[in-house]
Every structure is written in structure tokens, then in C-alpha cells.
């Protein structure tokens, strides 16, 4: 059985943004894409998702105190 790394309790949900979503996001945040936090192309989760350099990943973090929060990382 192949293990899915994303199912692990320590790994929050990762999603690739579509080009349109990415553009919209950068506009609303008012930042350039290189100003976002980064995630490496050889990160195991990025590999699993099959994201490429320049993609933006949406990360849905869940925290017992803060609740659900959303973060973005640029694949470098």
C-alpha cells in the first residue's frame, strides 16, 4: 500500500492555486510573488502534488487555538 504523506497528522492540507486564483491573490494581498514565503520544489508534499516552480500553494492550517488559517507559499 502506498502511503500518502498528506494524510499525516502533522501535514496540513496543501492545494495548488490555478493561474487565475494566483493572480487574484497577489492582487488582493498587494505583494509580488517573490515576497511570499517559499516552499521548495523538492519538498515531499510538493512532489506528491506535482507542483512546478512558480506555482503558488495554498496551505490550510488548523490550530487548536487559532482555528483555521490560510497561508500561501511560492514553489521555488
Amino acid at each position: 500500500m502506498k502511503v500518502k504523506l498528506q494524510d499525516h497528522i502533522l501535514v496540513p492540507k496543501h492545494e495548488i492555486l490555478s493561474e487565475e486564483e494566483a493572480r487574484e491573490l497577489l492582487e488582493t494581498l498587494g505583494v509580488k510573488e517573490e515576497e511570499l514565503p517559499k516552499i521548495r520544489v523538492d519538498d515531499p508534499i510538493v512532489k506528491e502534488l506535482g507542483a512546478k516552480r512558480g506555482n503558488i500553494i495554498r496551505i490550510i492550517r488548523e490550530d487548536e487555538l487559532v482555528g483555521v488559517s490560510i497561508a500561501y507559499r511560492l514553489v521555488v
Binding site: L5, H8, L10, V11, H14, I39, R40, I45, V46
Partner: peptide, 27 residues
């Protein structure tokens, strides 16, 4: 595997990636 954890943060970073490492540091 989904509920198996280690206290070696660098290992988590290598196997599960940066976001898991962030969670592990906090935890």
C-alpha cells in the same frame, strides 16, 4: 503511518516537508 510521529524535527522536515516541520517545531 498517519499517526506516527518522531521528536526529531529535521527528520520530519525531510520526510514530510516544510509545513509538517513548522507544526513539529510549534508542538
Amino acid at each position: 503511518f498517519t499517526r506516527t510521529v518522531t521528536n526529531n524535527i529535521y527528520e520530519i522536515y525531510e520526510v514530510l516537508g516544510i509545513e509538517a516541520a513548522r507544526n513539529a517545531v510549534i508542538k
